[in-house]
């Protein structure tokens, strides 16, 4: 297989409170032979809060991040749902609103940059499924996850609003030659077994990409209603009661349906659901205890990465037992 290569936008969380996300992502890429170039120039995406304060500034900073991927001539991948949504919302705006693009580029020109719109922006989850291919991932599994009941938790910002994700997460890759498409299937795979319905891509009311990935790693996925609901992270400071109610309900739902472990592609969901189990449990008046993994941590377990790379010691709810 020719080598897949992407520009990795890490976001803040992977460089700060969830170092295990970055180390496991890099370890998975290494095992699969995917090359990731870190975008060290990038800034914070604003995590959906900066835009509340200053929408224009948020567009400028996110456009600058994309510029650096464009300079490398690489498609960008993200490892956080909220980064993904903020970045593609910026891209969507600039690609369709020439006036705004001109305003943003006028600012970027002051630091010698220009947004061109040449790099696609996708979550690493979809790059793995569509470019690398589930069948190829299955072949690399050395420690099947067959003894785990895994509850997938999708996180809002990778599935809603669906039209934008469908467009960007399923974005056509640049032409071959400039960039090599894995033999994993890409578009073909998608046609055989559509990731998404014809008009929304991944069906936000019944998503299944994580189940398919879990299945490729030979784990059993847990079916539960809350898998596509919100974890409440974004109001944690101003409305902890709302946040706890949503986190607690989702986790209880997973536990009551037999989950041994929860997995999510969003580090904000992960942090929230991992850290807040005690306070959410108190509010709901029940016991809540279940390890919550980042998506690449789960893949890294199955691919036989080291304990250090998987970084289970950084998970708040004890997860080291998952490594056998």
């Amino acid at each position: 297989m020719s080598k897949l290569k992407y520009a990795l936008y890490t976001g803040c969380t992977a460089r700060e409170s969830t170092p295990e996300l970055l180390s496991s992502t890099l370890a998975v890429a290494e095992k699969l032979g995917i090359e990731l170039v870190l975008l060290d120039e990038a800034s914070c995406c604003g995590a959906s809060h900066l835009q509340d304060f200053d929408e224009f500034l948020s567009l400028v900073l996110n456009a600058r991040n994309i510029c650096y991927a464009e300079q490398l001539g690489l498609p960008m991948v993200t490892i956080c749902n909220t980064c993904q949504l903020n970045t593609v919302m910026t891209k969507e705006r600039l690609d369709n609103d020439p006036e705004m693009r001109a305003r943003v580029n006028e600012k970027l020109a002051e630091v010698g940059l220009e947004y061109k719109g040449t790099s696609s922006v996708r979550h690493f989850l979809y790059a793995l499924i569509d470019d690398y291919g589930l069948e190829n991932i299955r072949e690399k599994v050395v420690k099947p996850l067959s003894h785990f009941n895994i509850a997938p938790f999708y996180g809002c910002h990778n599935i809603r609003p669906s039209h934008i994700h469908y467009k960007h997460n399923a974005a056509a890759l640049p032409p071959e030659g400039e960039y090599h498409i894995g033999e994993g299937g890409g578009e073909n795979l998608e046609h055989e077994q559509p990731l998404m319905s014809k008009y929304t891509g991944e069906n936000p009311y019944a998503p299944d990409s994580l189940e398919r990935l879990i299945e490729a790693l030979e784990g059993k996925s847990v079916d539960y209603e809350s898998k596509n609901k919100c974890c409440g992270f974004h109001v944690d400071l101003q409305a902890p009661k709302t946040s706890n109610a949503l986190t607690g309900t989702a986790l209880s739902d997973a536990i009551d349906n037999g989950a041994d472990v929860v997995v999510t592609p969003c580090p904000l969901c992960q942090l929230n659901m991992d850290l807040k189990q005690e306070s959410a449990g108190k509010q709901l008046g029940r016991e809540i205890e279940v390890p919550v993994l980042h998506l690449p941590q789960m893949i890294a377990l199955a691919l036989g990465c080291t304990l250090e790379e998987i970084g289970l010691k950084h998970n708040v709810t004890k997860a080291t037992g998952l490594y056998a």
């Binding site: 803040c12 969380t13 700060e16 914070c44 604003g46 900066l50 304060f53 200053d54 400071l237 101003q238």
Partner: peptide, 21 residues
Amino acid sequence: VATKHAEGFVRSIKKFGYLDE
């Protein structure tokens, strides 16, 4: 707490580029 949280992003990004969590 909510408005300072939104505005605080600018404060942090100015210092580090990243959010100081």
